[in-house]
Amino acid sequence: MKHMFKEITLQLLQGFGENLTLFGLTLIMSMPLGLLICFGSMSRFQPLRWLARTYVWIIRGSPLLLQLFIVFYVPGLVFGAPMKNRMMAALVAFVINYSAYFSEIYRGGIESISVGQYEAGHVLSMKRSQVFMRIVLPQVIKRIMPPISNEIITLSKDTSLARVIAVAEVIMVAERFTAKGLVWPLFYTGVFFLLFSGFLTLLFGFIEKKLNYYRG
């Protein structure tokens, strides 16, 4: 029994490695991409603004589950070039999906900074880029930490959706045991998610505390 527990834990851990890979790579790519989309949705150039906001509408307005299927099947069906790497398909879908959400969080943060901050920078003869990088962005980062951490914790659990295109993530691994009549590993996967989101919660708490040296 003890031996089986260890064996199952190791296998689940291997599956959870897939979740973590998807989690990490999605973050690295979707956070900067989200900023680009955010700039697009705030652009003074109307077609670009329209394009960015339509993108956000479509992505936020449809299920991530469906987006996974589309990214996985459409290249094969339409272009005759099927997705060979399931993980790659999942990653593409996740990056598209999360960049849309991040872009809206960024936009909320940037729009919450008062015009006076920009004007103070401008009358001090700062460049536009300096005003953004030195004055606006640091304040935005502080303000968006709570919604960003929320989104990141959601992502850590959403990675299990990759199961629907047969990425061997932790729940899929657990279901193999369920098929053999062993149900508890499925419930056991919850522990992995809980531990990881606990770690994330502590991490974000630490970052928010670090950013608390000023108010406003």
């Binding site: 006076g116 901050q117 004007e119 103070a120 009358v123 003869s125 460049k127 640091p138 406003g216």
Partner: peptide, 23 residues
């Protein structure tokens, strides 16, 4: 923008709401 920045150097501005950089 570059020309505006040079012109702005001639004048200083103190705002009603201070607009200090909080960070």
């Amino acid at each position: 923008d570059v020309q505006l920045r040079n012109k702005r150097l001639h004048f200083g501005m103190v705002f009603q709401q201070f607009n200090l950089f909080p960070q």
